[in-house]
């Protein structure tokens, strides 16, 4: 599962992309508003998943971590996502995403 584990240790602060040191390709995942509050961090890295993995499937994997993740992804009707700075439907494949974001429906203006 992703770059995190049950011990709550995540590889933070690395830029997204290929890291020659360990040869892994990673993606950055950002959380905003109530997602950041529930999960307790604004950003983390995950090992890149197969390109046909959907945003929704990534939500499921994150939700399986429990704790704040389970709270954040409890109601999928209130989850919105973006891939590489573009709003994306939850059935969108991750492709070669470098930056993925999860947040609630927007309330600006």
């Amino acid at each position: 599962m992703g770059g995190g584990g049950p011990d709550g240790h995540y590889r933070l602060g690395l830029s997204a992309g290929r890291h020659p040191a360990h040869g892994l390709t990673v993606a950055k995942v950002l959380y905003f508003a109530r997602f950041r509050e529930a999960i307790g961090i604004g950003e983390e890295e995950i090992d890149l998943l197969p390109s046909d993995t959907s945003l929704a499937a990534l939500c499921e994997r994150l939700c399986e971590r429990g704790g704040g993740y389970a709270v954040a992804f409890d109601d999928m009707t209130k989850v919105r996502g973006a891939i590489d700075l573009e709003m994306a439907a939850l059935d969108s494949p991750l492709g070669s995403a470098q930056e993925i974001a999860f947040f609630p429906p927007v309330t600006g203006g």
Binding site: F32, R34, A82, V106, T107, G108
Partner: peptide
């Protein structure tokens, strides 16, 4: 811009309550 731009509002009240605004 109310529905397509990534902004989120959080309200705080005099009695200490605070919550994220739900999208309409």
């Amino acid at each position: 811009l109310k529905t397509r731009a990534p902004f989120w509002k959080r309200e705080s009240f005099g009695d200490g309550r605070s919550n994220w605004v739900e999208a309409k």
